[in-house]
Each structure stands twice: as structure tokens, then as C-alpha cells.
Design a protein around this nucleic acid. Sequence first.
DNA 1: AAAGGTTTAGAGTGTTTACTCTAATTATTC
DNA 2: GAATAATTAGAGTAAACACTCTAAACCTTT
Lengths: 242, 242
Amino acid sequence: MAIMAVMKPSSTKDTNSKAVSTRERILCASLQLFNEQGERNVSTNHIAAHLDISPGNLYYHFKNKQAIIYALFGQYQKRVLNILQVPEDRQLQPMDKLNYLQGVFKGLWDFRFLHRDMEHLLLSDPQLHGHYRAFFRTCESRVREIFRGLGRAGILDVTEEDIIDLALNTWIIVTSWFSFLRCNLLSDESQTISPELLQGGIYQVFTLERPYLTEEYRDVMCELQQRYMPRPSWLANPPAAE
Amino acid sequence: MAIMAVMKPSSTKDTNSKAVSTRERILCASLQLFNEQGERNVSTNHIAAHLDISPGNLYYHFKNKQAIIYALFGQYQKRVLNILQVPEDRQLQPMDKLNYLQGVFKGLWDFRFLHRDMEHLLLSDPQLHGHYRAFFRTCESRVREIFRGLGRAGILDVTEEDIIDLALNTWIIVTSWFSFLRCNLLSDESQTISPELLQGGIYQVFTLERPYLTEEYRDVMCELQQRYMPRPSWLANPPAAE
DNA sequence: AAAGGTTTAGAGTGTTTACTCTAATTATTC
DNA sequence: GAATAATTAGAGTAAACACTCTAAACCTTT
């Protein structure tokens, strides 16, 4: 470690000497608590207590609660943009669509507190709001590019107008899925959503493009979609009294 | 008014003698403030101050803040269910779809604070959560019935499976639309969403069923949809740097 | 105009919150 | 191993919150 110190004598931020820096631990614990209880219900004191550190320590690493959220936001955006890329060296395949969805839904799950309190987080921080709008526009154009790729690959038969509409519908369904689940389907006890209900989101997004599937790929894509049909579990609920 | 008093001597709740009861004024002011600033940012003291009444007075009429929200929730549900009805004496027409959407979007706008903090409101009040789940199931079945009606009227060509998927997608887009607008499109200054951007939601919902339109009605419905195309205003934003 | 119920004002309470300050401790460098 | 800088602890603060309590004002009926 002496070598390390020599190699990076005046580096600004890397505390490699420690296994995990306090800063990282704060981010990690914040993410966990925010996801479990909602950002609104988790105070900085809670986070500090959870980590067995003092509030002062927390505020040494982050100038305020907002800064923690900001950092987590950055992680989330980086991760999503990493996923939404069209390969340049080959055509898109049916499984690609699935991989996109699984990756994005996983990301949404890991940072689910964000979309739970999104409006409050953005409206109380104009700078963050600006970043997010730019992030959305980037995602929107990436998703359109994916749909164009699926068109080029002969999987979808879509006009440019269809693509624009599909992309926006997809964005809304995807980003609203967990909120939808928590509000409309989950009773309090079933805290554990992930496996099968998350899959329901993938199924639901597939329904958006089903009408546009080419004959050639209709069967294979529909079969793919059927794997994610989660209905029995929650459609079983009594379908409303009236 | 003496006559009124004689006619309804021991009625439980009507304070007809006054123009507007304090209870009504509290509900009205709460709704307004919640919508403008978010439920999270409006305290009971704020509401009382806004009305120039004392906090004690407010708590005389509502045992807690939750009770105010609960009452507003009731108004909202009643209004939506009033709209989502299939006429029994005639077939559905293209304009019906439009009327459903306009009515529902107006309701969503008037109670927009609800969907802004929905998760928190529901997760912190199990009873309300239960009611809301039932409300959702009712709405879902009503919307399906509307789609079935559009099928019977020869406007849509849909299987029962399509209907199930369409209904759910419609629900999610509709209930998420204002949140989507506030998060992704609005800068802070343009506080006033209503007219044209609300219309964008109607357009967007129409896109869901466009692929299912029968040839007979495709032109008329698409023309109807085009009226609600709001794109130029906010699609003009630079489409992301990449 | 007295009585009795309803409505209101307004001060106050206990708790929680985000955040600050100072001093102590630990690492790093010379 | 002394000096310096980076961390941490922990008490503390001012503001905001949901909500309570008591007494006064206001009706309505007799």
C-alpha cells in the first residue's frame, strides 16, 4: 500500500486504502433505505443511524440530502444509458428487445425510489430537473433508434410516426410500472415484488408493439411474450363488483 | 329560510343557512393548495392560514390531514366512475371515445395532486389503499367494456386479449400523463399545463388503439386524433445531444 | 333573554427535520 | 515523531409539523 500511496500521491478522491469509503457506504445505505421506505420517510439522521455514524460525518461527505439524491440519480442515468444502445455491427434480433427490457427494468427496480417521488425530487431542484429532461430526451431518441432497428431487421412494420408514438408509450409504461404495481395490485404484505410481477411489465411493453409485428416474426415474438405473462397471479383478483 | 328550516328540521349535515360551509371551504382550499404545491408541501396550518381560520377550527371539521385527503379521494372516484359508463340504449360512436377521454383527463387535472403522491398516500393508509385497488379494478372492467363496445360498433377489430392489454395500457398512460408532463417536458415557468398539453394525453391514448381501427373507421378516427396532436410545442425541444 | 349546542380562535405541545459547530480522533507527510 | 490535513463524533439548534386544549363567540330555540 506504500506503493499505492506513492503512485497516487495527491489524488483527490480515491480512498483506496479503505475497503469501502464512507461516501460509498452512505450512498449505498441511502439507496437501500430510500427504496424500502421512500425518500420522504428517510431522514439524514436515519441514514447516519443505520450506518452507525454521526450526522456530522454524513454532512462532511454530502453538503445536504439533495446531494445524496443527486449522486444516486447520476448512477441511475449512467446505468440506463449504458443499456440503451443499438449495436452497430449487426442487425437487431428478437432477443435484443428482451435484453433491453430486462436491463432497464432491473435498473428501475434498483433505483425504484426515484420514480416513486420523482415529481417532488425534480420540482424542488431545478438543476436536477434540467438534467432529467435532457436524460429523457436522450432515452427517447435511443428508444426510437431501437424501434427503427427492429424495423430494419424486418421484425416490425412501422412508419416513423408509429415509432414516435411507440417510443413514448413505452417510456411511460416502463417508468410507471412499479408505481402501478404498488398502487393497484400489491397488498401491504407482499412487499417482495421482483420476480414475477416485474416480468408483467415486460409482457405489458410487448403488447404495445404486437400489432406491428411482421408475419415473419409474429409467432416467435408472441411466444417470447407469453413467457412473461404473469396474469394468473393477480388477474385472479375478483374483477370488481360493478 | 324559515320554511327550509321547518322542512328539514333535524337533517344531519346540511348547513344550507350559510352560503358555503366551512367544511366545504376546507376541502376546496385543500384541493387547490395540494394541486398547486403538492400534498407534501401543504400543512394543515397552511390550509387554515389560507382560509383565515384557526388550526383548531380545521381540526374541528377534520380529525386529521388524512381525513381531508380521504374526502377528496371520494370526490375524485365518484366523478370518474360517473364518466366511465357504456350507454345501454345505443351503440358507441367515435365521439364517445373522445368524451370519455376529455372527461377523465379533466378529472385527473382537477385532482392532480392525487397521482402526484399516490404511492405515499396509499402506502401510509391501508384502508385507502384497499379502496383504491377496488376502484382500479372497477375502472379496469369499465374500460374493457368500453373497448368491447367499440368492437361491437365496428370501430375496433380486437380480440378479448387485445382488450385486456389495451385497457391496462390505457389506464397507465392516462393516470401517468400529468406526472410525465411535469417531469419530462415542463420547465418551471410554464406552470400552466392545461389546454394544449392535456390534449397531448388524449392524442397519446388514441395511439394505443390506432393499429386496431377497422378500415371503415380508420380515417375518421385518425382525423379525430390529429386534432389533438400537440407535438410542435414540445417536440420542438432539441431532441437530445445523444 | 336565558339556555344549550355548535363553531371558532389562538396559544401551545411534543416530535421530527435538515443541518451546524466544536472538538476529538485518525491518517498522511515531512 | 511532530505537524498538518482529512475524517469523525456528538451535542445542539431553529424551524416546521400534525395535532390538542380551553375558552370565547355565535347561533338557534324556547
